[in-house]
Design a protein around this nucleic acid. Structure first.
Length: 554
RNA sequence: GCGCCUGUAGCUCAGCUGGAUAGAGCAACGGACUUCUAAUCCGUAGGCCGCAGGUUCGAAUCCUGCCAGGCGUACCA
């Protein structure tokens, strides 16, 4: 409908110019908006005001000419008027909305899908938590945002891959091995001093016990470094397995798990460093190797190889992101916790130094979750072993509610997550508000079946009976869905869908309370069943993208 | 100090690629179940859109400065 109006205006302008009513055929892009107030129509455009300076005419005069030559031979509009300083408001004839329903039924689970992605290969990397402890609530937010973003992009025609980057190399893994090994020796009677910088959580002890069960006291005979290495490998593998399970519980599966260690094992980190040298992007200073990131927008240069010969995390990240593009991804999206934002400039610098386009690499920052219980903040630290795991939260409040809460906020807005509140609010959590629509409509359809209505299909006479304001409102809202998705994909902001669904749910509940679907009139009943079935499809469609279930009964 | 994010109703947040009268939910108050699921609906009340300037016909939205909170600012990861 929107695009239709756009075309009509372009054509009207052309004709008006031909007839000499407008001065210039150059008009800016026509933007069609949906006004907030009913008395301003269903759609409106500010084109007359925006082109006033080009046309050298008063906005209202321009609007008059456009309307005069606007071709509404399809009779879509009840009224087109000029309002305020020069807005053109379009009032759509109610029946002109009806074809939207047919579209929804025909496209079914693909309603709202688009091809704006053009089959482009795109990768979304998210969560990527270090395998040094279980996932906590904060990771859950990144998981929800990343997963849903991937869903949306896929729905919009991108060829999406989900990847988890495993930081299984470097110091934190060594610390993990050390922590486990200490607990292990402790079980054999060693007096130990457990260092503060080691991981304190109870899961470390569990892993140590598992090792004892498998290896008995073998490791005590190893050289300490080797024993720590063994522990690290064992622990990381086990923790990663649990992470994978937790994510599955949250409804997330990955296409690929990428190990940092393999970058070293296959020499790709060294190769990347060599390439940097060849491109003269690095230099030596104070015994370390520096990347000239400051030349590409970073505030200063960054170390790639330390003076002691160790590579930095940045080095493996360079190799990793090179590898992503070598795997032919045209676009790469990293979902990070907001505490890593300081890292973005150097990554952008890397991209620029390699001549990549700006839109080929994006970082989605997800603000951290402030966890509290009954208003009291809960400290979160993997190292100190104080955290509420994602698994606990899923078990407490449910997968659907947890996902929904994470997605009812802009990802860059900090999120207060109160455990008691989340549990208590289970019943008036917006997720149930939306799911309830699906359950209610399912129930109506079941009741219809009992009356012998098994066919729900387009019928001119039946659909033409849909003229109540609440019915038109519902259809209008559903007509917006494809655009919401496109917007969500382009801005990479999943929360728009959540808010849209709440909106649609509200329109449905209002309708439900005012009108009966299964009425005494068979024709009207057919039309309304056709309508609410469309609503059910859109709700299901949206909830699926959010990874939330659509219950038949509640 | 510098950088990023945030600041909108009592609370939690939308709206921010400039538009007409500022939007939800929760909480408060008053109503609606003999009726397809009341996990619902209808209504009332609640606002210097952090502050001050600027750009514009028009600013919550863009620009500048300030204030407050969070985070970051390593030859850590």
């Amino acid at each position: 409908m929107k695009r239709n109006i756009q075309h009509l205006i372009y054509r009207a302008v052309r004709v008006a110019v031909e007839k000499g009513k407008l001065n210039s055929p150059d008009i800016p892009e026509v933007e069609i908006e949906e006004p907030k107030f009913d008395n301003q129509g269903d759609f409106s455009t500010n084109i007359a005001m925006v082109s006033a300076s080009v046309q050298k005419m008063a906005p209202r005069k321009i609007a008059e000419s456009i309307i005069k030559y606007l071709d509404d031979s399809r009779n879509n509009f009840e009224k087109i008027e000029i309002a305020g300083p020069g807005f053109i408001n379009f009032f759509v004839r109610p029946s002109a909305w009806h074809p939207v329903l047919k579209q929804i039924h025909e496209q079914n689970t693909h309603y709202g899908a688009s091809s704006i992605g053009n089959g482009e290969k795109i990768q979304v990397e998210f969560v990527s938590a270090n395998p040094t402890g279980p996932l906590h609530v904060g990771h859950g937010r990144g998981a929800a945002v990343g997963d849903v973003l991937a869903n949306i992009l896929s729905f919009c025609g991108y060829d999406v891959q989900r990847e988890y980057y495993i930081n299984d190399s470097g110091r934190q893994i060594k610390t993990l091995g050390q922590s486990v090994f200490l607990r292990y020796t402790e079980m054999f009677g060693s007096e130990i001093q457990f260092p503060e910088n080691c991981y304190q959580g109870g899961y470390i002890l569990d892993i140590a016990k598992d090792i004892r069960e498998k290896r008995h006291n073998d490791l005590l005979h190893f050289k300490e470094d080797d024993a720590i290495f063994e522990c690290a490998r064992f622990a990381a593998k086990q923790i990663l397995e649990e992470i994978s399970q937790d994510l599955k519980l949250f409804g997330i599966t990955y296409d690929n798990w990428f190990s940092e260690q393999t970058l070293y094992d296959t020499g790709r980190v060294n190769a990347a460093i060599e390439e940097l040298k060849n491109k003269r992007l690095v230099y030596k200073k104070d015994g370390a190797l520096w990347f000239k990131t400051a030349d590409y927008g970073d505030e200063k240069d960054r170390v790639v190889v330390r003076s002691n010969g160790d590579t930095t995390y940045f080095a493996s990240d360079i190799a990793y992101h090179q590898d992503k593009f070598q795997r032919n991804f045209q676009r790469v999206i990293d979902v990070w916790g907001a505490d890593h934002h300081g890292y973005i400039p150097r990554m952008k610098a890397l991209m620029e130094a390699y001549g990549r386009q700006k839109n080929q690499f994006d970082v989605i920052l997800v603000q951290l979750v402030n966890l509290s219980r009954d208003g009291e903040p809960v400290a979160m630290s993997t190292r100190a072993g104080k955290f509420v795991t994602l698994k606990d939260v899923i078990n407490e409040v449910g997968r659907d509610a947890a996902r929904f809460i994470f997605l009812t906020r802009h990802h860059e807005s900090p999120l207060d997550f109160d455990l008691e509140l989340a549990k208590k609010q289970t019943n008036d959590n917006p997720v149930y508000y939306v799911q309830y629509v699906h359950a209610r409509i399912s129930s109506i359809i079941r009741n219809g079946l009992e009356r012998g209505i098994s066919r729900i299909e387009w019928n001119d006479e039946a659909v033409s009976r849909l003229i109540e304001p609440e019915e038109i409102q519902l259809i209008k809202t559903m007509a917006r869905y494809p655009e919401v998705l496109k917007n969500s994909a382009e801005l990479m902001e999943p929360h728009h869908i959540t808010f849209y669904l709440i909106n649609l749910a509200s329109a449905f509940h209002a309708y439900y309370n005012k009108h009966r679907v299964l009425s005494d009139e068979p024709i009207l009943t057919d039309g309304r069943l056709y309508l609410v079935t469309a609503v059910k499809k859109v709700i299901h469609n949206g909830l699926s993208l959010l990874g939330v279930s659509s219950p038949e009964k509640m």
